[in-house]
Nucleic acid binder design. Structure first.
Length: 424
RNA sequence: GGAGAGGUGGCCGAGCGGCUGAAGGCACCGCUCUCGAAAAGCGGCAUCCUGUCAAAAACGGGAUCGUGGGUUCAAAUCCCACCCUCUCCGCCA
């Protein structure tokens, strides 16, 4: 959420941000309600001041043994007037907040302006593409040949877009989770956390999934609880309402969680394979940073995520999301895209964002400077490190052999009990 | 599910209708003392909104003691509902 003061004073910046993102919000209503709110507030404060001073006088008179009935009657009237005005104030305030909640974050100056993913510039390309002397198969075909996953049975258990792994496939998924967590904890200094997979409405609002994107979430019937679409939600909310010491920052967490997404509006997209599932595993990186270093932290966070692909020897590219393609809460986002030989495209496997103080304002996460009065909002960042199902897909496709087997990347072999290849 | 206790500033903790935006302590900042540091002494130290103002400072006003309602001229303090934490009992992986 942006600060109302900022919006008021920088309306043109907000308007530009919205148009760069290709979004629109009713700023006229926002302005009108804000002005009305202010006017009513002044009126209320006047009345409250009167009540406070007169109440003091009543108290003194009573001590002197008097019963100031007229004054008390007057204050009764003032009280009910205040109550009426407070109702109007509240209505306008709610309207302001509701619209404010719909305004996405302001993109950082370095974010390219563009309409959609076609306009995302490539930031870097890493690794060389594998060459095959046969036509590389898509990962779902490879996986079915190997007998390591079974989408048909999964759909009978639940429905479309759910994973079911067997044997070396299940092991591969689990190995990747451990490998990623170990790399980020031992290698990159993150603290491992295992958070709840179900969160309340407040937490979802803090990180920006709500109120705008309710239809993307799975909600528990009869509860104001939601299945998490990413570990970002529970992990960022670890410190909601807290004041962090300056020298504790940056606080860096990594968490494995399953993620649940309704994928509303993506019917017909990626219908086969592991790319788009209602449930998938992900290892997430989350940082709480000082404002002045958050963009450096974004670069290292992105490097930390890339490191997984480098150690697995998977070719990838990094793109900078343009204004039109960026998420609601983000000020700047890099997508890391892994090479998928069968489709001949790079597919998103990680998204690394700096939210600046957008989430911190909603979640009220602050920092206290050593020699300074008061507190200020921290910056929050996160990125996948990485999406596990998509990593499995990438390994299957990039490491596939002519005979249908798949080589296990060397970095993973210790986690796979020394297994060098997955064979049918 | 049943029975209790509790949620107060960066932290601990007192207060339980008006003199309390909140005692005391810790932490933090400034000064004194010291060659310096420690200790000690003195002083300062919540947040947000808002008015005068070009702005800052300063000063004035308002709000905030888990959240939301209510009682009252007046609520951290009384009443109701909800949320959360803790203890005990029951049930259970």
């Amino acid at each position: 959420m942006l600060e109302i003061k900022f919006v008021r004073q920088n309306l043109s910046i907000v308007e530009k941000s919205l148009s760069d993102r290709g979004k629109s919000v009713d700023l006229e209503t926002l302005k009108a309600c804000d002005v009305r709110r202010k006017a009513v507030l002044l009126e209320i404060e006047d009345l409250r001041r009167e009540r406070n001073t007169v109440s003091d006088r009543i108290s003194q008179l009573k001590k002197a043994g008097e019963e100031p009935e007229t004054l008390m009657q007057n204050m009764r009237d003032v009280g009910s007037k205040i109550k009426d005005l407070e109702k109007i104030l509240d209505e306008n305030e709610q309207a302001v907040i509701a619209i404010l909640m719909e305004i996405p974050n302001i993109p950082h100056a370095s974010v390219p302006i563009g309409k959609d993913s076609m306009d995302n510039p490539v930031f870097k390309t890493v690794g060389s593409l594998p060459e095959f002397d046969f036509t590389p198969l898509p990962h779902w075909t490879i996986g079915e040949h190997l007998g390591i996953f079974d989408f048909e049975r999964a759909s009978r258990i639940t429905g479309a877009r759910f994973p079911l792994y067997f044997g070396a496939g299940a092991r591969l998924e689990r190995s990747l989770i451990s490998f990623m967590l170990d790399t980020h904890t031992a290698g990159h200094g993150y603290t491992e956390v295992l958070p709840p997979f179900i969160v309340n409405r407040t937490s979802m609002t803090h990180t920006g999934q709500l109120p705008k994107f309710e239809e993307d979430l799975f909600k528990l019937e009869g509860w104001e609880y939601y299945l998490i679409p990413t570990a970002e939600v529970p992990v960022t909310n670890i410190h909601q309402g807290e004041v962090l010491d300056e020298d504790r920052l940056p606080v860096c967490y990594t968490a494995y969680t399953p993620c649940f997404r309704s994928e509303a509006g993506s019917y017909g997209k990626d219908t086969r394979g592991l790319i788009r599932q209602h449930q998938f595993n992900k290892v997430e990186l989350v940082k709480f940073s000082r404002p002045e270093t958050s963009y450096d932290e974004l670069e290292t966070l992105r490097e930390n995520a890339e490191e997984i692909l480098r150690r697995l020897n998977l070719p990838y590219q990094v793109v900078t999301l343009c204004t039109g393609d960026m998420g609601f809460s983000s000020a700047k986002t890099y997508d890391i895209e892994v090479w998928m030989p069968a489709q001949g495209v790079y597919r998103e496997i990680s998204s690394c964002s700096n939210f600046e103080d957008f989430q911190a304002r909603r979640a009220n996460i602050r920092l206290k400077r050593k020699n300074k009065k008061g507190t200020e909002l921290v910056h929050t960042l996160n990125g996948s490190g990485l999406a596990v199902g998509r990593t499995v897909a990438a390994i299957l496709e990039n490491y596939q052999q002519k005979d249908g087997s798949v080589i296990v990347p060397e970095a993973l072999r210790p986690y796979m009990g020394g297994m060098e290849a997955i064979t049918p």
